[in-house]
Amino acid sequence: MIELGFFVVFLACGFIFGQRAEKRHFKSIVKRESQSLSLPVVASKYPPDDQPYKQILVSGNVVVASDYFKSFTAGLINIFGGRVTPFESLLDRGRREAILRMKSAAQSHDASYVFNVKLETSRIVTGRAGAIEVLAYGTALVSTEPLTSNRTISSSATSPSAT
């Protein structure tokens, strides 16, 4: 009886807090994704050779845990088979977050591109429940011939001479 009580409480907690956390997370992901659109993330292996670039390895990682409700519904779906949507959204969150963190690491180096992006997912075992780790890494290409970053400086340098 007590066990059943715990189960119901956990399930309710998982449903309420888990859903709320997921909604908030997706909101922040969408917001940050639109802010970092200026930095292209490419899966290509071949870097552009239009100008010299410095290469820096950048990465971003995140560990997201499933909640009690997700684990339970996933268990139910497992009986009948089919799409396990609770985990699909969890993995989607993890991947997008990892890419965003990689992008912000690249932006801190003033990179113009991130090339050869690789994504890696692994299951983290913590007791009996599940969490996933997503790693995104790639090579940030930082222009050594500052074009975009110097444009603002040169324009401010030329404007006093023009006046």
Partner: peptide, 29 residues
Amino acid sequence: DIMASFKNIFGGELQGYTELLHESREEAT
């Protein structure tokens, strides 16, 4: 680990593990 198992009820990011794996990756590099 105990904190993580609590997090497993509510869901969300396990920051301790994120940091751990990040540090670990830095050490390996």
